[in-house]
Design a protein around this nucleic acid. Structure first.
Length: 276
DNA sequence: ACCCAGGGTTGCA
DNA sequence: TGCAACCATGGG
């Protein structure tokens, strides 16, 4: 029958981590559980206090897939202390959301998802991803997996546009094409420093600095990446600049101020901006 | 009828 | 180099 794997966690909250805007492919189930679609299956995972529960999951699968996926091996207690010490203005928001971690999501799915994300709200992003999955993804129990590159290639620009992708449809087909012909891959990017990897990602149509930084942060775990969207621009201007400021200036300021944990600081800033 | 959304491209100065 | 119109869609 079904196995269940449980593990004690600290500095981790499943809901905070899933709902903070880095991940789009999950649904709230019942009683503190979520159905999370990732890496070829739908994971039924829940949290009761400091106990994280993986249904129908072996310890081997946890160790080889989900520990990395939720970044559970890292010491966020230390990281939070460093951020709070250098940026006391973030202490309150960190205390209110002490369980956020930066996930390591599938590269292809993250790339397509954040291409979709441009100029859309989070519920609409999830809607497009849901439609793509239902139309072109494999069925898994009563859900659908994220489509494979081959399936999206077969769907074509028109098939993708039917899923409310709008002007992003040709962007997605360009990303799919470059992925399938091997021009862009997680392996290639892994061998590059972050600036070069960002440049490489931006050779895809529809991938600019913000989308590239999200892929680097949420998939390749380059936690020094600092995506600046409208919310980040707002909160950074309010906290530090007190006037309209170019995104490039905000990026370099963040690199100087937050250093190698910029991406994690960014996540607290993002929810801070949205909570206001 | 407007304005905005986890932006980026294109065209024009 | 900088700026703004435009892109497709849905919500407030």
């Amino acid at each position: 029958m079904s196995e269940r794997f449980e593990i004690k966690v600290k500095d981790f909250d499943l809901a905070e981590t899933l709902e903070c805007g880095q991940c789009f492919n999950f649904k709230k189930a019942d009683d503190d559980f979520y159905n999370v679609t990732a890496f070829g299956r739908v994971l039924h995972v829940g949290q009761k206090e400091d106990n994280l529960i993986f249904d129908d999951t072996t310890e081997e699968e946890y160790k080889s897939v989900w520990e990395d996926y939720f970044d559970l091996a890292a010491d966020y207690g230390m990281i939070k202390e460093i951020i709070k010490e250098n940026s006391p203005e973030l202490s309150d928001i960190i205390e209110k959301n002490p369980g956020i971690r930066i996930m390591k999501q599938d590269f292809f799915e993250t790339l397509i998802s954040f291409i979709i994300s441009q100029n859309k709200q989070i519920p609409q992003i999830k809607q497009v991803i849901g439609m793509l999955s239902e139309s072109y993804g494999e069925r898994y129990k009563d859900s659908f997996l994220f489509p494979t590159p081959e399936s999206l290639l077969a769907a074509g620009e028109d098939g993708i546009r039917k899923c409310k992708a709008g002007f992003r449809a040709p962007y997605i087909t360009d990303a799919v094409t470059k992925y399938i012909n091997g021009e862009i891959s997680e392996k290639i990017l892994s061998g590059l420093d972050t600036d070069s990897a960002r440049e490489k990602l931006m050779t895809i149509k529809g991938v600019g600095p913000k989308v590239a930084n999200c892929v680097l942060l949420y998939s390749l775990h380059r936690i020094e990446s600092f995506p600046v969207d409208v919310w980040m621009k707002r909160i950074m201007e309010e906290l530090y600049f007190h006037k309209d400021t170019d995104k490039k200036v905000i990026e370099s300021f963040a690199a100087e101020k937050f250093g190698r944990y910029s991406g994690i600081a960014q996540q607290y800033l993002f929810i801070y901006a949205k909570e206001k």
